[in-house]
Design a protein around this nucleic acid. Structure first.
Length: 205
DNA sequence: CTTCAGATGCTCT
DNA sequence: GAGCATCTGAAGA
């Protein structure tokens, strides 16, 4: 397990963490088996200075409490009444900030991922269903069966974690050099000047 | 390919 | 009560 990303990885500047998470492997243990996706899209949210962040200006409410937890904590909230969003808490404890995981590419245990999303086997999916099975924050949470039950969990625990490579699953470290795109974040039209911050990152294939 | 409406319930004012 | 870090299916270009 020495390839797992630990506290020192997340205890850094949030924008750097968001960029460096691209190409890494998100591992979700379900029924004793690993569901694995490669991270393809992320966004940074920083409470100190970012009006798009739930904890803007260090705002503390029951929901934002998780953002003040130690780096490497899982922050999951419900959006639009029916979808969940997965975030990984960054920066030193007490600095409310996190990286939103916006997209993953399934790389292991395709059948369980297809079952979670469409209640069928991977072979039975259409080409379009496969291409878009986990390319959004709500979709990937459904694909990996992530809900608020995991809010507050630690990435040092056994139910959800991130690895740089997984030799046992034949998944090598990905070289992201020259393949990282940058742009504005999605769905934060209310956030005034923060609308323009280039804090969305994605990997091209 | 694009736009568009509707679903649905929690969170904070 | 208003708004939300979204997704889906239907309809049109």
């Amino acid at each position: 397990m020495q390839y797992r990303l630990g506290t020192e990885f997340f205890d850094r500047d949030t924008v750097s963490v968001a960029r460096d998470l691209l190409g890494r492997y998100l591992v979700r243990m379900q029924a004793g088996r690993p569901l694995i996706g490669q991270i393809t899209e992320t966004e940074a949210y920083i409470g100190r200075c970012d009006k798009a962040c739930h904890a803007y200006g260090y705002r503390r409410t029951p929901r934002t409490e998780t953002l003040f937890a130690p780096p490497g904590t899982v922050y999951i909230y419900l959006i639009y009444g029916m979808y969940h969003c997965l975030n990984l808490v960054t920066e030193p404890e007490g600095e409310p900030a996190a990286v939103l995981i916006r997209g993953i590419r399934p790389v292991y245990n395709f059948d369980m991922i297809a079952e979670n999303r469409f209640h069928c086997k991977w072979d039975e999916l259409t080409k379009a269903q496969r291409a878009h099975i986990s390319d959004g924050p709500g979709k990937l949470c459904r694909a990996l069966d992530l809900t608020r039950a995991q809010n507050g969990a630690s990435l040092l625990g056994d139910e959800l974690f991130v690895c740089s490579c997984l030799p046992s699953q034949n998944l090598p470290a990905e070289d992201t050099e020259g393949r990282i795109q940058t742009g504005k974040r999605i769905g934060i039209d209310y956030a005034q000047e923060a609308v323009h911050f280039p804090w969305r990152f994605w990997l091209t294939f």
